[in-house]
Structures are given as structure tokens and as C-alpha cells.
Design a binder for these strands. Structure first.
Lengths: 206, 206
DNA sequence: GTCTATAGCTGGATAGAC
DNA sequence: GTCTATCCAGCTATAGAC
């Protein structure tokens, strides 16, 4: 076994641990949110010490940024893999279903916090902002196309639809149903999609 | 002027300051959320020192609890004053409009945080839980009646509708529209009510 | 690169003078 | 009841031994 293989192994282990750290971060963030998540929490969950954690990510902000970038990249990839022949509104529905399922399995919402401080922190992360803008421009195109075809309400402004769409990816109703109702994950997703697209009233097509 | 009047004056001033403290708390809470709000923030906003603040409220948790109780009481009072002859779904719509306007004017959402720790903190506050249960039972009756009359979708479980309804009172889309769009408060409220009740699709009655 | 130990700071809560 | 001054816990981040 040459020295190159050793380096490669080490490198691979490093990547694996980094991935484990991001997994733990994602899970803890989904549970406690940014402010209450501590670096000790993450280090303990992964089984390493805090200084080791800081060898991988030089600050809490960077760590959370990387975790969010991975999430957004996942969304972009998932969206790209959806059958291209489906109508835009179907693509939006399928992506939203994916986001809800990610969260139901202990993941993180697209919007990790609604507080202005966390938002401004993320906006300083150029890499993150780039991904968000990329995803957003794709979603915007889908919304406009769906409005043109009449599948989404053309009377609503595109902003209203987009922001509402993002909000549904972190709708606390999903958490409450998971915690307090006895519904299955499938049933929760189905009902929440129904509410998101057709609202609470009944005078709408199923 | 008798000693009794003096006491009364002092008492009145005390109540006034207490009210000012709750106003400041509400505003800061609406902006930063529970975790980032500090007792120094509140004391500075009111113009008193931190120990004085602690003379009124013996902990941060109690302070936030009282602010939330005042908010829920406001909702209960507002709901009670709505024209009794209106159909249930209209009452729900009017109350939701009120909640959105309160928030647009710098107030606090019904759900001040989605994190489990804040939720468990509030659940220990008996006085708060009592109010929430009172409001909730009234809303539940309205939802069931509206489902019976066909105004709300009878195929959705009551839980789904109620939790979604609460979520709309703290929908981050409202904040984003306020911050990033040039829509008036009236327009934001109107569009968000439309989205909440009729969804994002267009095949629904206006 | 990993740890133990700790610096430095912030924020909740209080002691004690007035 | 109000303040100044302070305690203490817990957090981010790092120094320094191995």
C-alpha cells in the first residue's frame, strides 16, 4: 500500500466525518433552531471534541451555512430530476412534498429561522445566497408558467405565491401534526399539500 | 389629597409602567424572537434598569408569558366582539385578518417560536395554557360548524385546519412581503387571506 | 489532528446602597 | 422601588500539550 493510498484514506475519512457533522447539525438545527444549537451539542452528537469540530468549520455561522447549502443543493438536484414533461404546478407540488418529507424525518426547514439576525447572517454568506438565488429563479419560472396556464392563480402576485410556497416548507403545522395528531407522515403530507394548493375551503377541485 | 389617593396614584403609575414593559416586550419579541430578546433590551427600551424590570416580572419566562397572555386575551376579546350573525368561516377570516394586522404593526405572532424548548416553557405556564385552551375550543367550534355548512373542506381533519390556521397567524411570508415587496399592508392582508382560504391555485371561488 | 483546559464574553438574575 | 455593581452559568472560540 503506497503513501498515496494512505492519504486518500485519510482524506476519505475526513470527508466522511464532515458529512457526519453536517448530518448532526441538520438534525439539531431542525429541533432547536440556530440560537439554541451549541457547538457542544454538535460535537457530542458526532462524538468528537469541540476543537476538532472547529478544525472542520471555523465558526458556528460557517457550519450552519454549509448545512444549509447542502440542503439547498439537495433541493436543486431533486428538482432537476423531476420528469421534465410534468406541468409546472406538478413540479412545484412534488418539490414541496419532498421538502415536507425531509422535515418530517428530522431534517431542517428551508427557512431555519424567521428572526432578522439569522437572516442577515445568511445573507452575508455569498455561497449560500448564490444557491438560493439559483433555486429561486427556477421556482419563479415555474410559478409564472403555472400562472400562465391557469394552474396557479394569475390574480396573485408572483411574490405572494413564492413567499407562501417557501413558508409551506417550514410550516409549523407539520410539526404540530407530527407531535400531537396520530396521523401518518403520508397523511400529513397529503393534507398539507391540499391545504397549500387548495386552501382551507371546500369549493376547490381535489 | 388623602394618603389613599397617593397610593392610588402610585398604583396607577405602576400599572402604566407594567403596560409599557409589555408593549416593549411584544415589539422586541416580534422582531428578534424569544431566544435573542434580552432583559437588557427590554429594560433599555422602557428606560428603566434591569433590577427594576425584575421587580415587575420575576423572570424572562414570566415576562414573555404575560405578554402572550395579553395577546391571547386580545384575540378572545376581538373574537367575542365580532357580529354574532356572521357565518363561522367569516368569523375565522376576520380574526385571522386581525392577527395579521397586529403583526404587520410590529406585534407578536400567536406562536412566538417553533422551537420545542420555547413551546415546553409555555406549556408550563398554567395561566397561558388556560387562555390558549379557551381560544382553541372556540375556534374548534367555528371550524366544525364551517365544515358542516360546507364553507370549510369537510374532507380535511379538524386538526389540520386548526394547526394550519394558527400557522397563518405567524406566516413568515407576511414578514417577507412587508420587507421585500412594495405592497401596502392592506394588499398583503388581502392576498394572504386569499392564499390561506383558497390556496395557490386558481380553481376556487374568489 | 486530537484532546484538556481555559480565555473572553454575554445574558439572566441578585445584593445592597439610597 | 430604583439604581450601581456584581455574581454566575453557559456559550463561542482558542491555546497548548500530546
Amino acid at each position: 500500500m503506497s503513501i498515496f493510498n494512505k492519504i486518500s484514506f485519510k482524506d476519505q475519512a475526513f470527508k466522511l466525518r464532515e458529512s457526519a457533522i453536517l448530518d448532526a447539525t441538520t438534525s439539531i438545527l431542525g429541533d432547536k433552531g440556530f440560537d439554541l444549537m451549541t457547538m457542544d451539542d454538535v460535537a457530542n452528537a458526532v462524538g468528537i471534541s469541540k476543537p476538532s469540530l472547529y478544525k472542520h468549520f471555523k465558526s458556528k455561522e460557517e457550519l450552519v451555512g454549509e448545512a444549509l447549502i447542502r440542503l439547498i443543493d439537495g433541493a436543486i438536484t431533486y428538482l432537476a430530476d423531476i420528469d421534465k414533461d410534468l406541468p409546472p404546478v406538478q413540479k412545484l407540488r412534488i418539490l414541496l412534498e419532498w421538502a415536507m418529507r425531509v422535515r418530517l424525518q428530522g431534517g431542517m426547514p428551508f427557512l431555519p429561522s424567521t428572526s432578522t439576525s439569522v437572516r442577515s447572517m445568511l445573507m452575508k454568506n455569498i455561497s449560500y445566497v448564490t444557491r438560493i438565488l439559483k433555486l429561486n429563479s427556477q421556482l419563479e419560472k415555474l410559478v409564472i408558467a403555472a400562472q400562465k396556464s391557469g394552474d396557479l392563480n394569475p390574480k396573485l402576485s408572483c411574490d405572494v405565491i413564492l413567499f407562501s410556497y417557501y413558508s409551506r416548507t417550514c410550516d409549523p403545522a407539520v410539526d404540530y401534526l407530527k407531535t400531537f395528531s396520530k396521523m401518518s407522515d403520508d397523511a400529513i403530507v397529503e393534507h398539507m399539500l391540499q391545504v397549500a394548493f387548495n386552501g382551507l375551503t371546500s369549493n376547490s377541485a381535489q
